[in-house]
């Protein structure tokens, strides 16, 4: 530990820095945010959990359903087996909420956000750099989940004589949509997290919006449900990973219209988060 007492040298002897680049810009912010997210185990574990849980539940569900169904191949083909093959997304979205939330709330939980913002005081750079990193990672992980779930699912249904593939009607769009839906869940949580600055609160709001709201609406009169149901985040967003677009009650949106409604929730949350992040004392 001779370095501790040998302070006479102070900073001399350290690498001379390259001439000041002039500006801490968006590129630096992106590299920095990438380092942040890859260098903590909680991120890695959360994403691994998202994949294992989603693909695992999809696999179990499809294996169970395929081996116990009494329906004929023709009947089965009329069902939305593409969406069913990705059933694990229903749970996976919750883990994506945790990922999106932690990407921002962990900075507040530790107080690290003040270090981050002293390094880059232009807060929009930090916010959008984080947003880009979260969007890209959640997209990649989401697509891994949806493609893996689907490809495993086709195997079980093939044993029942149903021939499913990415070239089946609407399948490719729905499978890509599955990943997009998961990405949307992470973005929604990221926005809420930036606004609330609190991990547990953010996850609660995320779960409420994606799950609990649907349950509450189920207890409303049917005529109300018909109007409200399709606007709920999970129902609107669910259309993009479905190949059939009829809801239990009332009419549902088409795939992309539904996704647009779903993304609106995320955008509202992201704007609220942006305002708080930019304006409020860190």
């Amino acid at each position: 530990m001779s370095t501790i007492t040998d302070t006479r040298s102070t900073l001399t002897g350290l690498t001379p820095l390259p001439p000041a680049s002039g500006r801490a810009g968006f590129g630096g912010a992106l590299r920095s945010e990438w380092t942040k997210i890859r260098s903590v185990k909680s991120t890695v574990w959360t994403l691994a959990a998202a994949i294992i849980i989603s693909v695992g539940i999809s696999t179990l569900g499809n294996w169970g359903q395929a081996s116990h169904t009494s329906l004929s191949a023709a009947d089965l083909a009329r069902r939305d087996l593409v969406q069913r093959s990705m059933f694990g997304i229903m749970l996976g979205q919750l883990v994506m909420v945790v990922f999106g939330a932690l990407a921002i709330t962990s900075e507040y939980a530790t107080g690290m956000v003040r270090t981050s913002l002293t390094a880059q005081p232009r807060r929009l750079h930090v916010y959008f750099a984080k947003l880009v990193i979260v969007t890209v990672i959640a997209f990649v992980v989401g697509e891994i989940i949806s493609f893996a779930s689907f490809l495993i699912g086709t195997h079980f249904w093939a044993t029942k004589g149903v021939d499913l593939s990415l070239s089946s009607h609407g399948a490719l769009q729905a499978v890509i949509g599955g990943g997009l839906y998961l990405d949307g869940a992470a973005l929604l949580a990221f926005g809420v997290g930036a606004a609330l600055r609190h991990t547990a609160g953010t996850i609660t709001v995320g779960v409420f919006l994606l799950f609990v709201v649907s349950i509450i609406v189920n207890f409303m009169p049917d005529s109300w449900q018909a109007d409200i149901d399709k606007y709920l985040p999970a129902n609107a967003g669910g259309q993009v990973w479905a190949t059939q677009h009829t809801a239990d009650v009332g009419t549902a949106f088409g795939a992309w219209a539904g996704f647009a409604v779903y993304i609106c929730y995320a955008v509202i949350a992201l704007l609220a988060g942006l305002l708080v992040f930019k304006r409020k004392d860190a």
């Binding site: 680049s21 500006r23 801490a24 630096g28 912010a29 590299r31 920095s32 945010e33 380092t35 942040k36 260098s39 903590v40 185990k41 909680s42 962990s106 900075e107 530790t110 690290m112 270090t115 981050s116 390094a119 880059q120």
Partner: peptide, 17 residues
């Protein structure tokens, strides 16, 4: 962040500029 190494903590700061 307690889960990050000392090196990575400084690295993300260094990368900003």
């Amino acid at each position: 962040h307690g889960g990050r190494t000392a090196f990575n903590h400084l690295l993300y700061l260094a990368q900003t500029q």
